[in-house]
């Protein structure tokens, strides 16, 4: 994977809000074909990172490139190449699933036969066949999550950015979404945030652990466990996020 194209490049990213600094010099890269997880305690900067990558927020300083485009100067080019699922999966409750997906497909530039084919594909892929005519406001959290994922996949983006895609799901739904995510890495890169360490360990080629807006570690889950002082992945995570933030392994700092 070392030679694969870098689809996400974050260099010394700083993001300040009026009363706090959410990100304090974050740097990492994600390559095509990689599934990466962002982990960290609440307030560590996971959502802010994803929002900046998705162009919803601008960086205070630093450089962020997605699929080769700068998120600040070429935000529309970036948005054409990403599928972004915000936390809590905001959808229009009054629309039907198929109408919502068709609307999203059209604003993403899909038309006619291509739109129809992509709608069929994502409905199948996300297991929405039985629910495609249901009103979104009546769907369970799990189904809403699947609708959000279907929306992300519609235009076959190179980069998938998913904020807590496993949050609030029951074990059966977690399994469905996990299986779905596992199949998504081919030909693109997936970056998702999660609090579910077991899922991150199982799904991710690499995890980025954030602590107080800084990168505490960026490595394969097995490597993090191995290089720790005993205990499993959870112990490694707790050690990295309870100690004062520092770069655990300088060689891996840039997501090498």
């Amino acid at each position: 994977m070392a030679d694969a194209e870098r689809l996400i490049e974050v260099d010394n990213l700083v993001r300040r809000f009026p009363r706090r600094e959410a990100l304090a010099g974050l740097s990492f890269q994600i390559r095509r074909g990689e599934i990466a997880g962002i982990l960290g305690p609440n307030g560590s900067g996971k959502t802010t990172t994803l929002r900046i990558l998705a162009t919803f927020l601008s960086p205070t300083s630093g450089r962020v490139r997605v699929a080769g485009f700068d998120t600040t100067t070429h935000s529309l080019d970036v948005r054409r190449r990403i599928g972004y699922l915000p936390e809590n999966v905001p959808l229009y409750p009054e629309m039907r699933v198929n109408e919502f997906l068709a609307f999203r497909g059209r604003i993403k530039g899909l038309r006619g036969a291509r739109l129809a084919a992509r709608l069929r594909d994502v409905v199948d892929q996300c297991g929405l066949g039985d629910s495609s005519r249901r009103v979104i406001g009546t769907l369970s959290r799990g189904y809403r999550q699947r609708v959000g994922l279907a929306d992300c996949l519609l235009h076959e983006p190179e980069v998938l950015l998913l904020d807590e895609p496993l949050a609030g799901l029951d074990p059966a739904q977690v399994r469905i979404v996990r299986d779905l995510l596992q199949g998504l890495g081919t030909g693109r890169c997936v970056l998702f945030s999660t609090h579910v360490l077991a899922e991150a360990e199982q799904l991710c080629h690499r995890v980025l652990i954030l602590n107080e807006g800084r990168l505490a570690a960026a490595d394969a889950p097995a490597q993090l466990v191995q290089s720790g002082e005993g205990g499993g992945f959870e112990a490694a995570f707790l050690r990295l996020t309870t100690l004062p933030p520092k770069v655990r392994n300088p060689k891996k700092r840039n997501g090498g």
Partner: peptide
């Protein structure tokens, strides 16, 4: 957030 991260 969904709207402003779409290509519009």
């Amino acid at each position: 957030e969904m709207l402003l991260t779409a290509p519009v």
